[in-house]
Design a protein around this nucleic acid. Sequence first.
DNA 1: ATCCAAAATGGGAGCGCTCTCACCATTAGT
DNA 2: ACTAATGGTGAGAGCGCTCCCATTTTGGAT
Lengths: 345, 345
Amino acid sequence: MSEVTRRPMMNLEDIAQLAGVSRSTVSRVVNNDPRVREQTRQHVLKVIAEHNYIPNIAARSLVTQRTQLLGLYIPYFVSDLFTDPYFPMLIQAITTRATEQEYDVMLWLRGSSISPDHFHQRVLDNRMVDGLILASTSRGDRLAQRLLERGQTFIVNGRPWENADEMNYVDTANVEGAQQAVEHLARLGRRRIGTITGRMDVISGYDRLTGYRQALERLDLPYDPALEVQSDFSETGGYLSMRRLLQQRPDAVFVASDHMAVGALRAIHEAGLSVPDDIAIVGFDDMPFATLAATNLTTVRQPVQRLGYLAAEGLIGLLEGKFTPPYQVVLPTQLIVRDTCGFPA
Amino acid sequence: MSEVTRRPMMNLEDIAQLAGVSRSTVSRVVNNDPRVREQTRQHVLKVIAEHNYIPNIAARSLVTQRTQLLGLYIPYFVSDLFTDPYFPMLIQAITTRATEQEYDVMLWLRGSSISPDHFHQRVLDNRMVDGLILASTSRGDRLAQRLLERGQTFIVNGRPWENADEMNYVDTANVEGAQQAVEHLARLGRRRIGTITGRMDVISGYDRLTGYRQALERLDLPYDPALEVQSDFSETGGYLSMRRLLQQRPDAVFVASDHMAVGALRAIHEAGLSVPDDIAIVGFDDMPFATLAATNLTTVRQPVQRLGYLAAEGLIGLLEGKFTPPYQVVLPTQLIVRDTCGFPA
DNA sequence: ATCCAAAATGGGAGCGCTCTCACCATTAGT
DNA sequence: ACTAATGGTGAGAGCGCTCCCATTTTGGAT
């Protein structure tokens, strides 16, 4: 079919012949085996370079049973990816660490045209990757469980909902982070502190709400369900939730993501109220846009890139036997005080 | 090392034995070869399902010389990825189309810790992918040329700087799009139309400037070099460039990306000027954030997702002999009139 | 029943690599 | 001088699959 005449690729045997040595020796040179005379090595290396020889990965994998490939599974919806830099940051960190350790990354994004089941099956049926990173899981997602049953090596970003004890994961201390935020608001004199939550089927959303509630209890502030508005991590969600919340006249709101906080700020401004004088806001994430002039959001910083970095490193360590499962890391957050919480400058 | 005892994976032979047929027959079933009796097929399928058999991709690739893997090369800097949804959108579209056609996608992101040379070499040395998509190229980048010399099948997003005639690419009609924008501004009575350009080593930046200049010429508007400020596609770049440009008192500005336009608007507001009364703004891209209430940007829409979709489809078509190189597609843009250009509502 | 094409199945070779083992050459130890 | 250890190299098997070709089975048509 193709009009391009593909000259057959060189293989080990060809190079061996050209260099006047055996296949084994060429293989040793390629794999940096020390048991080759320096002179021979140089000569073989020269022949390899002259003929642009590149080893056939498939053949190597067939023998070694390893591909040096990591799978990255991102079950998120299209629209979230477009506006929220969380996943780009995570992807960046993961690929960077993987590349540093001589691994490549295969990407599975849930596309709109593919059914979740078919998508799961595709991931499960794939034997090309040595290990997997699940960028996120939501409650009721069976993928992690099924991977566990298959004996696949994988690591989850965000503590899994079920069987967390026997799984490898990296996570942020979301409960504590949310507590920090609420306690900070209380310290500044706020008493009617509301919250706009993330998705309740995502562990970080759930944990941040838990942190909010625990903080209220610890601070002896009255718990008022009307001050809790469930949302979905999106900018629009934050906007709409804040409009509802405003009717309860809160003097502060802990918003479970920066993205929602931007929407919340918009709603507040539209209502003719001012931040932080009328309402103090603390977000969560510390995304790049949090520092934009119009916003300058007080927020709880989570180390997204560090998380990605450790996920890749952890998975590779597990694969290479450097770590023993379960590999579990929970990183602390940091409160970043800016303009929206009313802290005197 | 690993404490997990990995039971050896099933192979074709095992399944054949269990099903009481030959390896060949199982292979036919797995590959949907019609030359198998329906009864046999069902039986084999049952055995496969019972034992969770998954074919070994490496072994298959070794024979077929194909991996069903596409490489996606994104040479962009970290910070751009975090704030600009362009690449996430592109990645999404590419992976979606690839998945639909039974291909998987391998991702190469230039990480900060890896030198460009080493990164190129990594891509060049990789024989795992059937074909490559270069998400972007900048002037002087030798990768495309070297891939061409190697006989690799690849497709570039954005017309390549050199040897474009013999390369496969998808592109936006940037020149025409910029013309549209400037002509629209002129039609609304603006006469001192400035521009904030993108990076001049990226073809889209270059083309959009060309379009701006051509439009001025065609409209018989005076060309004033001081009204051209070179920038870099970033929000901060847009902000700083607009501050400089304001000294020239333009009554309209064509900003070569929405991202820069957001920065430009910020600079204008800071200067106490109003949009569109004092200055009309047209952006380029039509990114999701362009519609945000505070902005509602008039812009030139480019079909990013369609571009990604066609890049994947084109590459796969090329690989499978359905298309003959060169595969070259240039998609038209569309002017989206919103609030920032002063068009009466 | 007989024949024959077509359908279905099996066997073997080989893809390009790694890895074990055997071998040869060199050097050191007695 | 003879052995033993060491460093360097080669040969062969085999990873799990596809694909060609040979062989067997099947189901009409005669």
